[in-house]
Design a protein around this nucleic acid. Sequence first.
DNA 1: TTGAAAGCGGTACCAA
DNA 2: TTGGTACCGCTTTCAA
Lengths: 341, 341
Amino acid sequence: MNLKELSAHLGLSPTTVSRALNGYPEVSEKTRQRVQKAATEQGYSPNARAQGLATGRARAIGHVLPMSTQHEMVNPIFGDFVLGAGAAYARKGYEVVISLVDDTGEEAAYRAIKARGNVDGIIVHGPHMNDPRIALLRELQLPFVVHGRASFVTEPYSWLDTNNQRAFRRATDFLLDLGHRRIGLVNGLEFMDFAHRRRAGYTEALVARGLAPDPALMRSEEMTETYGYASARDMLDGPAPPTAFLAASMIVAIGVRRAIQDRGMTLGRDVSVITHDDDLSYLRNSVDVPIFTATRSSVQKAGTRAAHMLLSLIDNPDQPPLTHLLEAELIIGSSTGPAPS
Amino acid sequence: MNLKELSAHLGLSPTTVSRALNGYPEVSEKTRQRVQKAATEQGYSPNARAQGLATGRARAIGHVLPMSTQHEMVNPIFGDFVLGAGAAYARKGYEVVISLVDDTGEEAAYRAIKARGNVDGIIVHGPHMNDPRIALLRELQLPFVVHGRASFVTEPYSWLDTNNQRAFRRATDFLLDLGHRRIGLVNGLEFMDFAHRRRAGYTEALVARGLAPDPALMRSEEMTETYGYASARDMLDGPAPPTAFLAASMIVAIGVRRAIQDRGMTLGRDVSVITHDDDLSYLRNSVDVPIFTATRSSVQKAGTRAAHMLLSLIDNPDQPPLTHLLEAELIIGSSTGPAPS
DNA sequence: TTGAAAGCGGTACCAA
DNA sequence: TTGGTACCGCTTTCAA
C-alpha cells in the first residue's frame, strides 16, 4: 500500500493525504480523521527512501566504527554504546545505520557516507590523536559528535568522552601514596586518543612528585591477555622491576596477574595492580577491578546522551558545539596494597 | 556532485554515465574509462535513496532488537553479534540498520520495517517460544534469519542458534556423575526460547537418571546478580537444599557464589556451581566459568555467519531455509567438585 | 553506442 | 481546503 493507492482508495489526491498524515494545518479535521483511520486500517507506512528523497532528510543516524584490517574483533564497547544511542533515536523516530570503515581509505568512506545521503548525522567512534576525520566532517557539513576526543585538534567540535587522563592520574596518585615508586604502565595503543590521555595522566602524576617516567616501564599495544602477560613478565624480569602495574583493561590485567603469579609473587603484597574497564566493572568482587569508569549499562547511557546531543545539533545546526565529559569512578580492590619495603 | 552534474561535466547523458558506472556492457570501453576517471576525481557517489527507489533494493540489512519496556538495558550480546554481522555486510557493500522495537505493538513495527523499504532483509533477535514474528515475516515476504530459535513453530525458517539444550544437558550430567542429586537451576526468563531450551536440557538429564525435577529447585527470572543471590539463598535455606547450582550466566553465578559464601560454605566442596556465559569466558581463570559457549569474539563470528546466511537468502530467494547450530564448549573449573557425602 | 523520457514514492509549490 | 504538477536522483525501457 503506497500513497497513491491509499489516496485512490479514499477518493482524495495524494497531496491531501500526505498533508493529513504529516499534520499540516490546512486539512479539515474531518478529512484528517478519515485519512488517518484508513491509513492504519490499510497498514500504510510511507516509504522511507521516497520520503527521504523528497525531503532531503533521512531520519537516520550513522555510527561509524573503525574496523582495523589487522585484527578481526571490533571493540565491544561500541556495541553497547550504539545500543544505548539506538534506543534514544528510536524514541525520536530515527534509525541507526552502522558503517564499519576500515582504516585504509577512510576519507573516501566518509565522503561516500555524505553522498549516499542515508543519514542526517553521524557519531564517530575510536578517534585517534589529531584525527583528520574531524576537519573532514566539518568540511562535508555533516553534523557529527565524536565518541571520545582527538588531542591536538584545535577547531571546536562536539564530543562526549570519559575523563581518561584524570582516571589514570588518580590511579597513579593512589599507588604513589601507597609508596610505590616504580609503576609499570601496560597501556593500549597510544595513537588511540584515549590511550594517549591515559598515559598523560600517568606521566602527570609522576612528574608532580618529581619522578621521571621510565620508558622501560611503559608499554603500548593492542589490549590482549597475551600482551598483558608478556609485558608484565618482561618488566618483572628487568633490572629494576616495578612494584605496581596500571593495566589498560581487565583483559590486560588478567595477563599481568598471571605473570605475577607465575613468578611466585603475591598480588597486593609483592606487586599491586590497578586496572580500568568500562565493560566488566560488575566483576570487581570476583576479579580485581580497582578502578573503572563505567558499567556496560552506563556505556549504553553514554550512547543515549551522545544521541541526544547529535539530534539537538541536527535540529539546530547553528548552535555551538556541545561537549560532555564523564568522570571515572575510582574503586580500590584487594589487589592493591602498599609498596613492599 | 550528483549524476546529472557529473554527466553535464562530461558532456554525456545521465543514462550513459549510469551505465558506465554500473558495468553495463553496451558502453564503449573508452567512454567507461573517461567516466570512471571523472567519477573518482569528482568524488561522485550515487545517492543511496535515489538508487534504492529506482532499483527497489536498499543494500542494507535490518537487525531488529527487542527492547523491553520493563528494563532499560538491551542484552549486550546483541552488540557483538551485530558488529560481527556488520563486518560481513560491509564487505558486500551492505549497511546495517538497527531497529530497537519494544515489546508492545511488535506487529506494526515489523510491517513498518517492510513498508519503509530501507532494508532488503532482517535478522531477528531474542526470539520467544512460539514467536509470532516468524509467521508474520513469512507473510510479509521479507527475507529473514532468526538469531536463536522459536520452539513450537512448525513451519520452516532460517535460523542460527547455539545448542543451549545440549549444553545444559551436559552440565547437568556432569554434576550427576559427580554424585549430585539436588541441583538448583537458576535460569533466565523462560518465555525466552534459549532459557526454555536450557531448562529442557536440565530436565532431560534428570529424567534420564530417573530423577524427578523438583519445582523448588528451579527459578526463572531476568539474569541479574541480585536474582542469583536471592534464589541461591532461598534454595539453600529450604528444607532440602541443593548441593550444586546451574547458573544462567556469569552475573547470576556471581550472585549464587555470594550466597554460598554468605552461608559460610566453600565453593566446589560444600556446593558446586556451573555457569554458562557467551561474553565472559576469557575470565574462566579468574572467576569460575566451567561451561561456556562462546567468547565475545566468537559471538561476533556467529553474527558474521548469520549475515552470510541472510545475504545468500536475499540473492537466492527460492532456496530452502538455512539453519546452523553451534555447539557449546564445555570446560570444567575449580568451583565444581563431587557431591558432599 | 548513446540519449530521451517515464517512473520509483513521496513532498511542496502554486493555482483553484 | 483541495488538487495539479514539478521535482528529489537514479535506473531502465525504448528509440535513434
